[in-house]
Amino acid sequence: MRMSKIVTITADLLPPFILAFGLYVIAHGHLTPGGGFQGGAVTATGLLLMIVAYSYKDIAKAIRQDRFKLYESLGLIIVIGVGYIAFLYGATFFTNWLVNTPLPFGTYVPFGPNPGDLNTGGTMPLYNIFVGVEVFCGLTIVVLYMLSGLEEGEGSS
C-alpha cells in the first residue's frame, strides 16, 4: 500500500539528511548531548521513513534481515570486548584504558569553550559508535518483524 505523492517525494528526499544527522549525533557523543542510543534511534528513523512511505514488501526484499541480526550481535560483542580489554591493564571491568596513551582517542576532553576535538575521550567514542550500530540494526529488525506479522495476520490466522 503506497502513500500519497507528498509522502513519497518527502521519503525520497529526506533520508540522507536524517542519516547524516544521526551519524553526527553518534560520533559527537562525548562532546555534545547525544551518544550511542540516541544517535542509533535517529538513524533508524531515517530507514523507517522509507519503510512507511513505500509498501513493506518492496523494502523487505532490499534489506537482508539475517545480516542485520549478525551486525547487531557483533556490535554488542565488540562493546563487551572493549570492556574486557581493561582486564589486560590490571584494572577492573569497563575501565577507561585509552586515556593518557598515545593511541587514537587518547586525551581528556578539554574543559571550557572550544570547538570540540573528536580525537579525545578515551573509550567513550568507541562505546558510542558500536552501541549506535547495535541500536540501529536492532530497532530496524523490531519494526520489520512487527510489519511482517501484520502482513501475515491479514492473510491467514
Binding site: L31, T32, P33, V109, P110, F111, G112, P113, N114, P115, G116
Partner: peptide, 16 residues
C-alpha cells in the same frame, strides 16, 4: 556540557 563551560580568564574551573 564541557564545551559550553563559562571559562573566562579569571574564573576557576571548579567555580564554572
Amino acid at each position: 556540557i564541557f564545551t559550553l563551560a563559562p571559562l573566562e580568564p579569571g574564573v576557576e574551573p571548579a567555580a564554572a
